[in-house]
């Protein structure tokens, strides 16, 4: 990827998705990360702990765009596919994509029943060369906000392309 292509991507919005946080998706996800806490399966447990709905496990925001993304909720201009475009450009020459790092910042509890919009911005692309490989680091950041625009959680996704 040349310098001009690289810098043109940085700071741009590369995706936008609106989802309904669904109860069955949350309980299935909790089971998949080995969490047997009844709070993810029983509304009464969640209410007893002061939550308005069933809370989501800490890493659920990473997969949130895959559940409850109803067609009628999506922006008319499309969801954007900037990350796929960046990775497609890198993978055109072969290589391997690795998940390098992942970070979350939690602003407010996310609970089932909420409608949230995630906006993804490409934060950085940089290249490290070594004798063994060329590694391109791609950092994107998704902030999920509720219908009032209040930020709920921010997820930072660091991908490494190695060739």
């Amino acid at each position: 990827m040349d310098e001009a292509t690289r810098t043109a991507f940085i700071g741009t919005e590369i995706g936008r998705t609106t989802v309904v946080v669904e109860r069955s998706a949350v309980s299935f996800f909790a089971q998949a990360v080995l969490d047997d806490d009844p709070i993810y399966r029983d509304q009464r447990e969640a209410e007893a702990k002061g939550f308005a709905g069933i809370p989501v496990p800490p890493t659920f925001p990473f997969v949130m765009q895959n559940w409850g993304a109803y067609g009628e909720l999506q922006p008319a201009e499309g969801n954007g596919s900037g990350l796929a475009q960046v990775l497609g450009t890198l993978m055109a020459g072969g290589g391997l994509i690795l998940h390098g790092e992942q970070a979350f910042t939690y602003h407010q509890p996310i609970v089932t029943g909420q409608t949230l919009t995630g906006v993804t911005v490409l934060r950085d692309i940089y290249v490290k060369e070594s004798k063994a490989a060329t590694m391109t680091f791609v950092v994107s950041e998704t902030t999920w906000s509720d219908e009032a625009g209040t930020p709920m959680a921010t997820a930072t996704f660091n991908i490494i392309h190695r060739i």
């Binding site: 806490d37 702990k49 800490p58 998940h99 390098g100 992942q102 910042t105 939690y106």
Partner: peptide, 17 residues
């Protein structure tokens, strides 16, 4: 983590794979 410090208490969580 959540079994230790409770659901809804996390402010940040980051890892390197």
């Amino acid at each position: 983590l959540t079994h230790f410090i409770g659901v809804g208490t996390l402010e940040t969580f980051s890892v390197r794979f």
